[in-house]
Design a protein around this nucleic acid. Structure first.
Length: 588
DNA sequence: GTGAACCGGGG
DNA sequence: GTGTACGGTTCAC
């Protein structure tokens, strides 16, 4: 099956992982939920005194205490692995453990249970997994609602990844219109007047309480009926992906508020569960179990560099076409006036949903690919910053290499780090004037290349070293061991090698679809490699190391300046430079 | 210069 | 949910 999403429920005292999936390439197939009760949460403890630590922790209400050897920034160390009965025991007991006299520190104590599961089992969402041995189970004992539409199974054997093609996904986009004559919509008073839906399976529909001769309009008696019908259509279409534009913070919260007011259940999940919200900092994330809700607004902010991110602006950028728009404060007039105006409103409303589908088809493949590389749920990856993406990729790699993951910075460490910044790239202010015979030079992936060639990594950074055994950064004089390959450099190396392999395959391929798919994959790897530099310089990150960030930019400045000097020897006069490239004028 | 306040998208 | 949190710009002093 294709693994769409994952979470866990509690059955009795036990945590049970739920894997949400669907048979591959079969949009009509029922949804599947596989339950696995055979996985337990754990953390690592750094002991002052191994024996005493072992004894003290054993006294607590934990499942297992064992001594393990793991690497900590490449150095082998003894840790104590503490396994818990339930994920919620971790926050309950970790402070107690940290405060024990025999304990120096605790590690990997803040990794969500479902993420731990994906990493430890080697599973990748949005890719195919093989479920070896499963038996049908009853929903009553699994706290799953009567409205559950999925087939539920209990995992008997193993679950493992199998390489697969890009999954065929059933996508449904939505957009709502609200009657708001008095400024921004208020869900306590302003009703939803239209719900527009567009799928990649051919559905185009606007639900509304108004009548229209337009064939895509389905008229219902009331707003309550409109919401009921919306739920019904989602269940019928059974999409893998639900997409919207700013739907995390507008459409879904609004639908939820109105549904509550009108007492309509929003059982949109494949398990029959209600629409939920997760607080994500200042913002919401709307969660529909078993389907992946993606808010394209966030994705566009990540991939496009624009002044504004309205749907119209984004559409113009991606398709080079103007999209007509009715200003928000005029919608109520179009609605009240009826006739041609109402017809226009219907058309624009549907067009917004169709546009979201189009933008999704164009832009989601890259995020899907990143999901399949980073190995965290698509829902999460679609809401992660590039820095978080890199961090979770590294956490998985750390597991594979037997490395214990560094802790997130404490509040004081964070504020301490925030004050400092690595020096930036070299910038030469442009020489004013109109230049002719301009040539441009730039380094391909300058920072990733420096990290690899100079082995810049927290585990290779040393205070003292023989000159022939280490790389010494210009200006700052930071020292990095030449051998062995550091944790981060080796990972970037693998990413770039894999990218070269994909690009070669792309050139050799005759199949246009395959070419496109390989291209998205290599783009995803490029993004990841280019973001790696950030983990050293961003204060919130586990692998933060100012010395590494500082050394990389120092080498970068050194390379670009040396190259400019060389270019001048050949008669190229640089007129402008920035970080990894420069413009020059050729003079005879 | 510093820290608090504000803002994004959506109708 | 192994909760707890963005980043950039403008404003007020």
């Amino acid at each position: 099956m294709v693994l769409l999403d994952i979470d866990y429920i509690t059955r009795g005292e036990k945590a049970v992982i739920r894997l949400f999936g669907r048979e591959k390439n079969d949009a009509d197939e029922n949804s599947i939920i596989v339950l696995d009760d055979g996985f337990q949460p754990y953390i690592y403890v750094v002991p002052h005194d191994l024996e005493q630590c072992h004894e003290q922790i054993k006294e607590l209400d934990v499942l297992k205490v064992e001594r393990v050897e793991m690497k900590d920034l490449a150095r082998k160390k003894d840790f104590i692995k503490v396994t818990f009965n339930h994920p919620q025991d971790v926050p309950k007991l970790r402070d107690k453990i940290r405060d024990l006299t025999s304990v120096k520190d605790i590690r990997e104590h803040d990794i969500p249970f479902y993420r731990r599961y994906l990493i430890d089992k080697g599973l990748f969402p949005m890719a195919e997994v093989e479920v070896e041995g499963k038996t049908a189970t009853h929903q009553e004992i699994n706290e799953i609602s009567n409205d559950c539409l999925a087939n539920i199974f209990e995992l008997e054997g193993e679950i493992r990844p199998i390489s697969s093609d890009f999954p065929n996904l059933n996508v449904l986009s939505l957009d709502i219109e609200v009657y708001n004559p008095k400024g921004m919509p208020k869900s306590e008073e302003d009703p939803i007047i239209m719900i527009s839906l567009s799928s990649n399976q051919g559905l185009q529909k606007v639900l509304s309480t108004a009548e229209s001769p337009l064939d895509f309009v389905e008229t219902v008696d009331s707003e309550a009926e409109m919401l009921r019908r919306f739920v019904e259509i989602v269940q019928e279409e059974n999409p893998d992906l639900l997409i919207g534009y700013n739907s995390d913070n507008f459409d879904f919260p609004y639908i939820k508020d109105r549904a509550e007011l009108l007492n309509i259940p929003l059982n949109l999940g494949t398990d029959g569960s209600q629409l939920k919200f997760i607080k994500k900092g200042f913002a919401n994330a709307a969660l529909v179990k078993g389907r992946v809700h993606v808010d394209l607004y966030l994705i566009m902010r990540r991939y496009l560099q624009l002044d504004r991110y309205t749907l119209e602006r984004v559409y113009l950028e991606l398709f080079d076409q103007e999209k007509q728009d009715i200003p928000g404060d005029e919608i109520h007039r179009y609605w009240s006036e009826g006739g041609d105006k109402l017809e226009t409103l219907f058309k624009y409303s549907l067009d917004d949903a169709v546009t979201v589908t189009e933008i999704g088809e164009k832009m989601l493949p890259l995020t899907l690919e990143l999901t399949r590389i980073v190995g965290q749920p698509f829902f999460d990856v679609a809401r992660m910053t590039t820095g978080q993406l890199v961090e979770w990729y590294l956490i998985r790699k750390a597991y594979e290499q037997g490395e214990v993951v560094p802790n997130k910075p404490s509040a004081s460490q964070y504020s301490n780090r925030r004050g400092k910044r690595a020096a930036g790239g070299y910038v030469k202010d442009p020489v004013k004037g109109l230049h002719e015979n301009i040539v441009y030079f730039d380094f391909r992936s300058l920072y990733p290349s420096i990290i690899i060639s100079k082995n810049v990594s927290p585990d290779t950074l040393v205070a003292e070293c023989d000159e022939d055994k280490c790389h010494i950064s210009p200006e700052r004089g930071y020292m990095f061991l030449k051998e062995p390959a550091g944790f981060v450099p080796s990972i970037i190396g693998n990413i770039l090698n894999e990218r070269v392999r994909l690009k070669t395959m792309m050139k050799e391929s005759q199949d246009e679809d395959e070419k496109k798919f390989l291209n998205v994959q290599q783009e995803a790897l490029k993004r990841l490699a280019n973001s790696m530099y950030g983990v050293y310089g961003y204060s919130r990150f586990r692998w933060y190391r100012l010395e590494c960030a500082d050394a990389i930019t120092a080498w970068g400045r050194d390379y670009i300046k040396k190259t400019m000097v060389k270019a001048e020897d050949f008669g190229f006069k640089p007129v402008y430079a920035d970080t990894d490239g420069f413009y020059a004028v050729y003079q005879q």
